[in-house]
Design a protein around this nucleic acid. Structure first.
Length: 234
DNA sequence: AACAAACCCAACCGCCCTCAG
DNA sequence: CCTGAGGGCGGTTGGGTTTGT
């Protein structure tokens, strides 16, 4: 344990190879926020030099991403968020960052912690919805192996379908809970859709790694047109 | 009131991937 | 190609807080 002085305050921390460890002080937070404001995110290893922080890059990045980012949503996980976590975990497993991308304002760390305390430890049975999604995924993965080779040809032959899938990918991102809930509710009515279309649709909806940011706009402009877009898949 | 157990969450660790040189 | 730096990610830890007995 090391007792140090920072900005006139006596603080505790561990100094290892020149780097401070342990809980962040308010002054360190302030320095990091100021650094990001001036230089943007990234180049975390420059923080020590440019901001005067005795923290390594990893520590700075983690502090920013999990705690200081202005767009973080504070407070308890809502039931709707919980259901999304369950559904996505059923599909992606412990890919917390992937799951977090579908929950604006929530961090992978937060979701990971929530999952561990609420589900894993208790062995809580996932919801029926999550089970359904998991089953669909397994079925889809199997199906995909057979379909993959035909996919490119399919995209060419069914160009409008491919366009719609792309559009759904684009539109799903950056939506509010309410909007995503509406979208989900529409999909809930689509569970009996033909297998091929279901697979394509789910693939589009949940492959959120490369989503874009115009769903909210499209949603605001016309829920009806979105419904028309989805209905052909149902 | 005191203690233990459970819960919560910030932070660290180690592995992996990407990319520039 | 090889290598090292930088960064992302999932797993784990440890300490503070809350709840139960």
């Amino acid at each position: 344990m090391y007792w140090g002085v920072m900005a006139g305050q006596t603080v505790w921390g561990i100094i290892e190879e020149g780097w401070r460890k342990g809980p962040w002080t308010a002054e360190e937070d302030r320095l990091l926020i100021e650094y990001v404001r001036l230089h943007g995110e990234g180049r975390w290893n420059s923080v020590a030099r440019l901001a005067g922080l005795k923290r390594n890059g990893k520590s700075c990045r983690l502090r920013w991403v999990n705690y200081l980012r202005p767009d973080l949503k504070r407070g308890q996980i809502t039931p709707h968020e919980e259901s999304i976590i369950l559904e996505l975990h059923a599909m992606w497993g412990n890919r917390w960052s992937t799951i977090a991308r579908s929950l604006p304002g929530r961090t992978d760390n937060e979701i990971k912690n929530y999952w561990r305390t609420h589900f894993k430890k208790k062995g809580k049975v996932p919801s029926d919805a999550a089970e359904n999604v998991k089953n669909r995924l397994l079925k889809r993965q199997k199906f995909h192996k057979q379909q993959q080779q035909q996919l490119q040809q399919q995209q060419q032959e069914q160009y409008p379908l491919f366009l719609m899938k792309q559009e759904l990918d684009n539109m799903y991102s950056n939506t509010t809970d309410e909007e995503q809930s509406y979208f989900h509710s529409m999909l809930n009515g689509s569970l009996s859709m033909p297998e091929v279309n279901e697979d394509i649709l789910w693939d589009g909806l949940w492959n959120l790694d490369d989503v874009h940011d115009n769903f909210a706009t499209a949603f605001a402009s016309s829920k009806a047109s979105l419904h028309n877009l989805v209905t052909p898949f149902c």
